[in-house]
Amino acid sequence: MSDVILQAAGLHKSYVMGRTTLDVLKGVSLGVHRGEFVAIMGSSGCGKSTLLHLLGALDVPDRGTVKFDGTDVFGGSNAQRDRLRNRTFGFVFQFYHLLPELNVLENTLIPCMVGHSVAGWLGRRADLRRHATDLLGRLGLGDRLRHRPNELSGGERQRVAIARALANRPQVLLADEPTGNLDAATGCEIMGVLTELNRAGQTVVMVTHDPQVAASAHRIVTLSDGRIRNPKA
């Protein structure tokens, strides 16, 4: 855990809600080291998810910078940010967000399809499918490859979402309340998966409001009133 892989500095983000402007982030700075497991905590609506979206180039800050491996994420074009989301970051959402028309394997392969042209896909199809199948096998979904999301339990859906996030071997896994929609036992199971991945070297940034879930992380940062209260924690 020596080098900083992700560095946010002075992030500001506000939303216009009708006639009022809601300042969600008021100058957030945060560094994430390679291989680190960081949990971002805070009360509902404090801006945890917004910070995660900015760290993963899913949203654009009003002010401030996010650097990945020293390169400004928002300094480049939209296409570069799209590429980062595809290759470098992997997202896991609270509500799984799987595509209902696709089966487990196809959902997992979607980032690979996004990252390849038709010709490129046809050339690497077998490798990519093998990788996705391995991933799903490791996550205990080896016998569920052809099932659609509506045929899976909540825990299984979240594991598919994790598999999808890992499909392109991202350098940073960003999880937004990954256990928020699950019962305690299943949430534990999912945290086990994330911890295991982190042990294997995967950098993980997780948003949660549950201290028990956050306890799995190396470091917990608390967000309150748009600022980080314990940046060194």
Binding site: N78, H97, I110, R164
Partner: peptide, 16 residues
């Protein structure tokens, strides 16, 4: 709408 958000979150471009 949600599916489009998912696809964009994994790197799909607006043009794509």
């Amino acid at each position: 709408t949600r599916d489009i958000g998912i696809i964009k979150s994994v790197g799909a471009t607006a043009l794509g």
